[in-house]
Amino acid sequence: MIINNLKLIREKKKISQSELAALLESSRQTINGIEKNKYNPSLQLALKIAYYLNTPLEDIFQWQ
């Protein structure tokens, strides 16, 4: 199971779900699903999230 700190990191950087979704060329619903652990992002999307949040991938997503 993958757990994530996306919501915590996103809020700390003062970025809304909609703003992050626009940067990622994704939907706000996708970001919401990832944050609620209802959806696991593809590797490509996970890497883009890490890039746009300027945060190491392993700080956002962790195996448990």
Rank of each mutant, 00 (worst) to 15 (best):
T55I: 07
L6P: 03
N32A: 15
S16N: 06
D59G: 07
A50K: 01
E58F: 11
N5M: 07
T55Q: 05
N4M: 06
L20N: 02
T30M: 14
T30C: 15
E11Y: 06
L24N: 00
N54Y: 06
A22R: 14
L24C: 15
S27W: 05
S27R: 08
Q64C: 11
G33I: 08
L57A: 02
M1F: 08
T55K: 03
L6Y: 00
E58C: 13
I49L: 05
A21V: 04
N4F: 06
A50P: 00
K12V: 09
N54W: 06
E19R: 14
D59W: 07
T30D: 05
K7C: 10
A50S: 10
L6A: 01
T55G: 04
R10D: 03
N5T: 02
L47N: 10
I60H: 01
L53Q: 00
K13D: 02
N37K: 08
L45P: 00
Q29C: 13
L24E: 00
N5W: 09
R10Y: 08
K12F: 10
N54F: 06
N54T: 08
E11K: 11
Y39G: 05
E25F: 08
S42V: 04
W63Q: 03
L43S: 05
P41L: 07
E58N: 12
R10A: 04
I15G: 01
Y39F: 14
I49R: 00
S16M: 05
Q29S: 14
I2D: 04
S16Y: 04
T55M: 08
Q62W: 06
K14I: 04
Y51M: 10
I3K: 14
R10I: 07
L47R: 12
T30R: 10
L47Q: 12
L23W: 13
D59M: 11
L45E: 05
I60R: 00
K38Q: 14
L47E: 11
Q29H: 13
I3A: 07
N32E: 15
K14F: 09
I3P: 02
S42R: 05
Y52M: 10
P56G: 06
K14D: 09
Q29V: 10
L20R: 00
L43T: 07
K48Q: 10
T55R: 04
Q17T: 08
L6W: 00
Y39L: 14
I34M: 04
L6D: 03
K7E: 10
Q64D: 15
L23G: 09
W63H: 03
N32I: 14
K14Q: 12
K14S: 10
E58L: 09
T30I: 15
N37H: 09
Q29M: 11
K36G: 09
P41K: 02
D59Q: 13
I3Q: 07
I60W: 03
E25A: 12
G33P: 01
N4Q: 03
E11M: 12
K36L: 14
S18H: 11
L45K: 01
L53Y: 01
Q29L: 10
D59F: 09
A50N: 02
E25D: 14
P56A: 10
N40W: 13
S18M: 12
S16C: 05
N40A: 15
R28Q: 14
W63T: 04
E11T: 12
L47C: 15
L23A: 15
L8G: 10
P56Y: 06
I2R: 09
L57M: 09
I2N: 06
T55L: 06
I3D: 04
I31K: 01
A22P: 02
I15P: 00
I15S: 01
I49Q: 00
Q62Y: 07
P41E: 03
K38C: 13
S27H: 07
E58Q: 12
I9K: 01
M1K: 07
E35H: 02
P41V: 10
S16G: 07
K36D: 13
Q29D: 14
G33L: 15
K38Y: 13
L6H: 03
M1R: 07
L24Q: 00
E25K: 15
K36P: 02
I31E: 01
E11V: 10
N5P: 00
E35Y: 03
R28K: 13
D59P: 02
E25Y: 07
L23I: 10
S27T: 14
Q44V: 11
Y39A: 09
I15E: 00
S42Y: 05
K48S: 07
G33V: 07
M1E: 04
N5E: 02
K36M: 14
S16F: 04
R10W: 07
S26W: 06
L47Y: 09
Q17A: 07
E19W: 08
I15T: 04
L43M: 13
E11H: 07
L24I: 15
L24A: 12
K14Y: 06
N5K: 05
L23C: 11
Q62A: 09
Y39V: 14
L57I: 12
K12S: 14
I60K: 01
F61N: 00
A21M: 03
M1W: 05
K13L: 14
Q64V: 12
I31R: 01
Y39I: 15
L53N: 00
P41H: 02
L45N: 02
L43P: 09
R28C: 11
I15R: 03
Q44R: 13
F61R: 00
A22K: 14
L57C: 08
N54M: 10
N5Q: 04
L8N: 14
K12H: 10
L45G: 00
Q29E: 15
N37S: 10
S42H: 06
I31A: 02
E35G: 02
Q44I: 11
W63S: 03
P41G: 03
I34K: 01
Y51F: 14
T55D: 02
G33Y: 13
L53S: 00
N5Y: 08
P41T: 04
Q44A: 14
L57T: 03
I9D: 01
K36V: 10
T55Y: 06
L23M: 14
L24G: 00
P41W: 04
K12T: 12
E58S: 12
K36N: 15
K7M: 08
A50Y: 04
W63F: 08
R10S: 04
N32T: 09
W63M: 05
N5A: 05
P41Q: 02
T30N: 06
N54P: 01
I60S: 01
L43C: 14
S26F: 08
A22W: 10
Y52F: 14
R28A: 14
L20I: 04
G33H: 13
R10C: 13
D59S: 09
L53W: 02
L53C: 03
A50T: 03
Q64A: 14
A46V: 05
I3C: 13
K7A: 12
E19T: 12
L57K: 01
E11W: 05
S27C: 08
E25R: 14
E25M: 11
K38R: 13
Q62M: 11
G33D: 15
K38T: 13
K14V: 05
A50D: 02
N54H: 09
Y51W: 11
N32L: 09
E35R: 02
E35L: 04
